[in-house]
Design a protein around this nucleic acid. Sequence first.
DNA 1: AGAAATTTGTTCGTATGTATA
DNA 2: TTATACATACGAACAAATTTC
Lengths: 244, 244
Amino acid sequence: MEKTYERVVEYVKEEILEGRLHPGDRLPSERELAEKLGTSRNSVREGLRVLDNIGIVSSQHGSGNYIAVNFNETMTEMLAFMYILKGIKEDQLTDFRRSIEREALTLAVAKVTDQQKKELREHLEKLETVRTESARVRHDKAIHQILVTASGNDFLITNFMALNNFIDRYIRSMRSRIINGMHDQHLLARAHRDLVEGILEGNLEKGMSGLMRHFEYIRIYGGESEEQGNAMKVEKAETTDPIV
Amino acid sequence: MEKTYERVVEYVKEEILEGRLHPGDRLPSERELAEKLGTSRNSVREGLRVLDNIGIVSSQHGSGNYIAVNFNETMTEMLAFMYILKGIKEDQLTDFRRSIEREALTLAVAKVTDQQKKELREHLEKLETVRTESARVRHDKAIHQILVTASGNDFLITNFMALNNFIDRYIRSMRSRIINGMHDQHLLARAHRDLVEGILEGNLEKGMSGLMRHFEYIRIYGGESEEQGNAMKVEKAETTDPIV
DNA sequence: AGAAATTTGTTCGTATGTATA
DNA sequence: TTATACATACGAACAAATTTC
């Protein structure tokens, strides 16, 4: 037997899928919806709360319920949360990241803008000159972010953001473990140099070589976790300051 | 101001993240939760409905609320829906699929089991001998599914399932357009043969060559949509019978 | 600027169907 | 079978925010 609030969820979804409701539109009032769907206002509200929390609907006190305009945030949050519930393993996470960045590089070589090239050059130079670990981490992270953004692919971008969100919040130790395990920072820097130069020169092979070495280092120096192959323990992190 | 039902959602999420609640566990009754969180039953219910619909909590009439064991289904559904709201473009979708399968192949070559090899052989043979399009589509789809499954990576598997779910439900025309555009079925078949044989022989280069050709064909023969580069129109599909 | 109408936010009461001991 | 606990569902009422006139 279908639950009542599911009818409400389905109704709104249908309206969106059929093109009758668009991002930013206002839904009928809760009382109208209750009457139209032959149910009570409480049930309508339950359905709307679901959509609100998922990020599809935005409820505004005294005003109405609206189709959300931007779901990126909830989307990445939900992805991150589900990954926790599935008990994701660290090496799987790295492989998925490689999957995204590998494809992003292929696309970025052809699509990268001049502005993005400029930013890549700047971050690469800073990466090789700054002296604090946190600064290196920041520029490192920026380079990878620009790489994925330059791909212009929303799937890749969204998933990469969710991945970063997830790593930043719940497994910060992964970053520091890799950094600390990396005795020779120059190897990592050189990998990044090839990656960036490959993009700048439109040389896919060179960039891919750097990117693949980068992930090899992660696998070698990041794989010294005490619990091998087991699901990671989640650690709550209040601050964020991550990435390799 | 934080809404009341969000406190409920946050409470349950915290309990899970802190390891005090695990999949299959029963939550306190709605009345207990209401008292513990200093709110009413209705607000508790609204929070639980959200978690129920997301797939994190399973509400069982007359019994109680439980932490769900399997969220794959809701997860893929949610991903698919959000992709619609974002107005995803077809070529982006193909690129994302290539991202997943490319990485999956890299991993699968090393991890594939004998049982999976056997299934790959069977589907490849059937793919080359059956005469109806729907049968070819079925075996084609199976090969790609096994490829990704053999990677053993939950990120790749989940996203691939979501992607298929999405394509099957909302852009079936993409599949048929590619099939119809493919005048020479042998080219596609040969790409699949190299892909499968590469996995069977542990030959990554051979497999990757087949896989990349496969996606080239999709790009060439699937790119003849009337609306070029624009967001796809969503079409509702009652039946499913897809994939290339 | 202010009052009235509208709409969402929150709580309570009640009735009913279901699962479990 | 009965009793209890629980979830489902509806309706009503008031509070609080927003919009409208």
